[in-house]
Design a protein around this nucleic acid. Structure first.
Lengths: 223, 223, 223, 223
DNA sequence: CATGAATGAGCTTTCATTCAT
DNA sequence: GATGAATGAAAGCTCATTCAT
């Protein structure tokens, strides 16, 4: 069994096999859950499948997560919200034009989230939000709001430094958000199942961001 | 596929009430199904609700549609298509700047599709495409491809007339498509269930299209 | 299949077998539920057993009763609370000494409730009230309160007519209630499973009521 | 069965703390189980709760008791018995009227059993006797029979001394037993969970015993 | 001896689908 | 054709019991 990537900090490995298994369980379950949720959606994923994929029994899953919703929330925290603080710190120390900052922002988003299973979670939330209001509220709080705040910081920086035209920030964030969420959706639905819809993500992002920058910038953006 | 009666203005009425009802059944069921699928999604819509809304019994529904999935497919077939030819004709005769054409294009989309139940179907297709590959292929052919062709015509016109910068058309269409599909999705998921996400569609579209035009146009676009 | 006793009023029998079955279902289910609840208790009775005993499937049970608790409430209404109004009317028209009234009261209780499965429901409620507070509240409202009111009416009549000594009514009702509920409990627990505990109900009741009357009456009660 | 250590005042203390803990385990578990069974009933008490309350692990509980049912039996064996001999001796030396003796009998019962956890066990036995026939038989032998004999001695003394009317002793004991067991049941079920049913035990007992005495005595009882 | 992670049978409830009428 | 009563396979979650450490 390869160590799953989220088990980063284990300075002193547990002594016994028994203990090692225990420590690994939540991570294995989260990995299994992420894969299945992304592949089949929230409602269509059965907790027993998740447990089986993680090679444990149904009961064991409930030892670590009190409900299916709780499991989903943990997956979201693990895969998405836990990464915003790091991201935010990088933004703090960014030096350079805001155009470059926005380019970095979107390519980083692709590298860290868009190209990973995590983007499937965004698709999933858009698909099932209506049927699981509590989950939607959670996602809103943990992902949408911090994410939007991050985008807004970039735009505001551009405006404050005289690089971007002034704009209504509430709608401005959607200029950045829409292309990214669209890509997440497309990748996990029509983009995958229909020939001719395959999309080179880098080319897509590049065109989106450059066109957007031309639209936003006071003076022509220098790439 | 014969046109189902509820689409047509029915020039030759059937003889008796009983027969008229009988002929109208499938259409009434499709209308009911469209409303409920859009409102609650596929899984959360119970066939009994559909039957009740169409004022028939559950058993009758299965007389016309062999399964819930079959009903869903019929709804998609029924509700989308036939709007593109009209639209295409309007494009043929459009006179004026391509910037204006794109503005018209997006506000017309909103008026005719985005603000109607049809946008719910787009959301639904994006949500369930993976679980219904056959349906996805159908949607691709009937909706995505003609729609993309229409968008491409507008962009190509702009480039040909020297109004828009040259671009890779394959990715260019997504500059227009992404904001629209994002709005369809948002409206039917997180935009509705979470406070603070409500979105004035006109304001959203206006900012999207103007920013896009600034990005696309050689010279500043005059509104 | 013998007609179950609670199907008393069916002036025009349903035409078809199908319909007859349907009409009989709730009653058959209530009979089955009463038997099993009394025999095994509420928690230990599985709805599937009830359905099987009534010769229907699990799903059918939920067609008629929305939950296990709902089924239980219906059983209580059917077996107990539905009979108080009749009883109350009999009390209204009772003529004779209050001592006789109390004798009648207790022997009628035995004939109509105590000796039937319904007494098992009382035992059940005493046993499981703590674990099913909603059921307990329902039983309190539907059975305990009307029952206590009935007892109190008898006692008050005796006091008002100068036959019984004055007493604190709140505790007075337990003079009558305790022997009856004790018998219900005993019959369905230690009285049945242990040799030597069998109890002739008539003898038990006779001694209880006569001793009680001697205790209550101003002058010696004449049987 | 050796006396378990927590019952005794343990004149010879074990050598080490570890050993003392070890020896005390079963008793601590029984104490915990008694409390929880009385509070929540058999089915609703989880073995893990019992283990936690006794500050051991779930596994340890199963080291001492082979099953939950076995634990239950042990609790009953442990908690009831050994009180009757003392009580019997007190009766031997009682001087005074039998009416006073019966008053003393019931108030002593309340003080020593009725108001303690032991009354919860009586309730529990009445509730679960049917599902644990072996347990019921044990309870019958250890508790019911000696208890009834004690009551019968009092009544017989009254009759022998010409204070009480003659009676069928088999049913006479229930005149005394019923009010007490009813109170035990009521206290732990409907009396606790439903407003308006709360019962002042002293007032309840006083009325029951005085009414009973009036019913039993040849001449009016002098309090 | 003691632990507590792991198990899986068992429970209530839902709902697409069938079929006798 | 139309009905709606009946079905039974799932699903999420609990908890007594086991057993490797």
């Amino acid at each position: 069994m390869p160590l799953s990537p989220h088990q980063t900090d284990c300075p002193s490995a547990p002594q016994t096999k028994h203990e090692r298994r225990k420590d690994a369980r939540p991570g294995e379950l989260l990995d299994a859950a992420l894969s299945l949720f992304v592949e089949k959606g929230f409602a269509a994923t059965r907790v027993e499948e998740v447990a089986n994929l993680a090679s444990v029994s149904k009961g064991t899953l409930f030892l670590y997560f009190s409900s299916k919703e709780d499991l989903f929330k943990a997956v979201v925290r693990e895969s998405i919200s836990g990464r915003f603080s790091e991201w935010s710190a990088e933004f703090d120390s960014f030096e350079g034009s805001t155009a470059d900052m926005l380019r970095t922002c979107m390519s980083t988003w692709w590298a860290r989230l868009g190209s990973t299973k995590a983007s499937g979670l965004s698709k999933l939330m858009m698909s099932e939000a209506r049927n699981f209001p509590e989950l939607a509220a959670f996602y809103q709080q943990e992902v949408i709001e911090p994410g939007n705040a991050l985008i807004q910081r970039v735009l505001q920086r551009g405006v404050d430094r005289g690089e971007f035209r002034p704009m209504d920030m509430k709608y401005g964030v959607y200029l950045v958000l829409a292309p990214m969420l669209f890509l997440s959706m497309w990748k996990h639905s029509l983009g995958t199942c229909c020939v001719g819809n395959e999309l080179n993500p880098e080319a897509y992002i590049a065109l989106q961001v450059e066109t957007l920058l031309t639209g936003l910038c006071v003076a022509p953006a220098k790439p």
